[in-house]
């Protein structure tokens, strides 16, 4: 068992996972239920709707595609940050974590350009049911991105003080798992809203 697993701090027959890892997986299970509900609602509303615009005619597909690549890249950089953390390379960890954060901000920047264009064209959540779905789903996803930014920056700033804390690597791993989840949700959102 690796040194980071000292997070298990109680003797007993347990799951073999650290508290942080088990906790984040359970949290992600609840998040899956949250987004599964939203996607199901989207399906139900769309199937019951008399007309539904084609996503690529009203939304900006190139920007959505660029954003997808930005997020996927950030998933790679956070993995590299975790790998550097396990290899005890603090400078490398900080670089990749900062890169992850930068990419997250790029994602939000592109997103706000998209939203801004819509607002200027007088497309609001109340315009029609399609834009209601679009703004609420992408908005909730953006909130999750902001949550990830907060989590990742806390880890970045904690690095100096807590680098030798045996729990630190576990926390980076948990943040990574969460960040992948945010990424995966977007990979479902892109076809659901832009392409279908």
């Amino acid at each position: 068992m690796s040194s980071s697993a000292v997070a298990v701090n109680y003797p007993g027959e347990h799951s073999g996972l650290t508290n942080a890892k088990l906790g984040i997986w359970l949290f992600l299970a609840s998040e899956v239920m949250l987004f599964a509900t939203l996607f199901t609602s989207y399906l139900v509303i769309r199937l019951g709707s008399s007309s539904w615009p084609r996503g690529w005619e009203v939304l900006n597909v190139p920007l959505g595609t660029i954003n997808t690549f930005v997020l996927i890249t950030s998933s790679v950089t956070i993995i590299l940050a975790y790998a550097k953390c396990m290899a005890r390379d603090k400078a490398g960890f900080k670089t990749y974590m900062a890169l992850t954060l930068a990419l997250a901000f790029v994602f939000l920047g592109i997103k706000s350009v998209e939203w801004g264009t819509k607002f200027r064209a007088h497309h609001f959540p109340s315009t029609n049911i399609f834009f209601g779905v679009y703004f609420v789903l992408t908005g909730l996803h953006a909130l999750h991105v902001i949550g990830g930014i907060i989590l990742n920056s806390v880890l970045l700033f904690m690095a100096d003080k807590h680098w030798d804390d045996p729990l630190f690597a576990g926390r980076v791993e948990a943040a990574g798992l969460y960040w992948h989840f945010v990424d995966i949700v977007w990979i479902f959102l892109l076809p659901a809203l832009y392409l279908l």
């Binding site: 298990v8 109680y10 027959e13 088990l22 906790g23 359970l26």
Partner: peptide
Amino acid sequence: GSINFLVTTLNMRAK
């Protein structure tokens, strides 16, 4: 709360 209960019960039982 529910995450906390599950992790506690699964991971922290006495020997």
